[in-house]
Design a protein around this nucleic acid. Structure first.
Length: 290
DNA sequence: GCGAGTTACCGGTGGC
DNA sequence: TGCCACCGGTAACTC
């Protein structure tokens, strides 16, 4: 499950290998084409697969950047800028290879959905086992409303104040703190793993109502989220199930997690509890977190 | 018009 | 061994 640190790793790895290169042509999988004919939008959103393939050919990838858990591929063709927005969903992965056969993990090899043949040889490939990811071609970011509503990057100096202000709004008052910090319009890029870890570190019960948390604790919680995200970026991300970096390597942050996926609290050895908050499984220590 | 709630999108995995 | 419920990030839809 790629979260912000994993996406950051992907972007840092892609940049030197892909920026400045030109796409010769794009080939989407049979599945993508078939789904579209069935009225579904498998991976490629709001575009006809045929048109998507044609449009992207001969575009130059000028810059790649991460925003929350999205990857923005900035493109240029005939001096007109465009952007390809990628979200990895649950199981998406990018590969830069000489040949599609070079993807040696069978699961990813089997689920290749977009193959970008580069003009100078080699391939940029998007593989996605469960197809929860998305590729969205836009003239500009603002053309997709949800992208314009995202909270600032958590590392942005204004992000903490943004969180304090936003989380105080009436609509969040009676919501569980975990649901609020995982809302991309309040804090961007904080998914289940890191929300779980930060709440455990701050000894806050994930179901605690937002309006029952003091501003001081909110600030401490925000700083904790930033710290956990930074630590994970340094560790190459968490490898939970299917995440791989573009070289097919796993990260090591999963070894540093203290609560996510744990049966026993590492602090007090009490059995952990699970509950569903905002539709997601949430682990916590009933003894340490209040 | 906005917010809350629901549904769609999926195949690997773990439990039985 | 085989079946089946479960899992989850985001958008889009309905009410």
């Amino acid at each position: 499950m790629p979260e912000l640190p994993e996406v950051e790793g992907v972007v840092q790895a892609l940049k030197p290998k892909v920026e400045g290169r030109t796409i010769q042509h794009v080939q989407l999988s049979e599945r993508v084409h078939f789904s579209f004919s069935e009225g579904k939008q498998c991976i490629v959103k709001q575009a006809e697969p045929d048109a998507f393939e044609l449009t992207l050919s001969e575009m130059t990838i000028t810059k790649i950047e991460r925003r929350a858990k999205y990857i923005f591929f900035h493109l240029l063709k005939d001096e007109v800028p465009y952007v390809l927005v990628s979200h990895l969903g649950m199981t998406g992965a990018w590969f830069v290879v000489n040949s599609p056969e070079d993807i040696n993990e069978a699961k990813f090899q089997k689920h290749i959905h977009a193959t970008f043949k580069m003009a100078d040889g080699g391939y940029l490939i998007y593989s996605d086992i469960r197809r929860f990811g998305e590729l969205r071609f836009l003239a500009k970011i603002e053309d997709h409303i949800p992208l314009t509503k995202m909270a600032p990057e958590p590392f942005d100096e204004l992000a903490c104040e943004f969180f304090i202000t936003k989380s105080t709004l009436p609509k969040y008052a009676n919501k569980a703190v975990k649901e609020v910090i995982m809302d991309g319009q309040v804090i961007s890029g904080c998914g289940n793993i890191y929300a779980t870890e930060a709440l455990f570190a701050q000894k806050i019960h994930p179901a605690r109502k937002m309006n029952r948390i003091s501003e001081k604790r909110k600030r401490a919680l925000f700083e904790e989220i930033v710290a956990v995200l930074r630590q994970s970026i340094e560790a190459g991300g968490s490898t939970i199930s299917d995440y791989r970096n573009i070289n097919g390597e796993a990260g090591s942050m999963q070894n540093r997690l203290k609560m996510y996926g744990k049966k026993i609290c590492p602090a007090c050895e009490t059995a952990t509890s699970q509950m569903t908050i905002g539709g997601r499984t949430s682990s916590f220590c009933p003894n340490c977190q209040h």
